[in-house]
Amino acid sequence: MIRVNNRDEIEWEEGLTPAALLERMRYTFPHIIVTIDGEVVPPEEYATRPIPDGANVQLIHLIAGG
């Protein structure tokens, strides 16, 4: 299990990455900052950086709206 945005409990699976997590949550906004246990993940590592079981993940959406 991982915790997302200090609120949502999400089932963990082997090989889970930020890209897979964003897809699972259907988070399509282009300006999302990902942190894993407080460390910012560069976008080029979204598809490869593993998210460990028990991690605290933040998917920070910047402001949108016209």
Partner: peptide, 9 residues
């Protein structure tokens, strides 16, 4: 426009 900051993040 605070929806993402509040509701999502």
């Amino acid at each position: 426009w605070l929806i993402f900051m509040d509701q999502v993040s």
